[in-house]
């Protein structure tokens, strides 16, 4: 296996995630796209960990997974709050600060 096949797969997944963040209106779907991006980064870290014969990459992945779980918790709480205030999960509704 060459290193680049993993890195390019991760790059493709990351860009699909970016497309989702830019295009989706529903807040929950935006969070899912962010998870796609975080997973792509994790794949990169694991690939380099195997390439360099080093465990620190895997430990970083464990930290990233923990922080992603915390991020989903807080993110969903924020989207729930948006839903209570605007009666819709669409992020386009939150534009009261727009000049």
């Amino acid at each position: 296996m060459i290193l680049n096949q993993f890195l390019i797969l991760a790059a493709v997944l990351f860009c699909i995630g970016i497309y989702g963040v830019l295009v989706r209106r529903n807040g929950v779907l935006v969070l899912m796209s962010i998870e796609l991006m975080l997973n792509a980064v994790n794949l990169n870290l694991i690939a380099f960990s195997a390439y360099l014969q080093e465990t620190s990459g895997q430990i970083f992945v464990l930290f990233v997974i923990t922080i992603a779980a915390a991020e989903v918790g807080v993110g969903l709480a924020i989207i729930l709050l948006l839903f209570r205030n605007f009666r819709s999960p669409d992020l386009d509704q939150a534009q009261q600060l727009k000049g």
């Binding site: 790059a11 493709v12 990351f14 860009c15 699909i16 970016i18 497309y19 830019l22 295009v23 989706r24 209106r25 529903n26 779907l29 386009d92």
Partner: peptide, 17 residues
């Protein structure tokens, strides 16, 4: 479920990949 930025988002992610 999408907003109106499909084309620019597609171009941006394609350029990045």
């Amino acid at each position: 479920l999408d907003n109106s930025q499909r084309m620019p988002a597609f171009v941006a992610s394609l350029a990045l990949v």
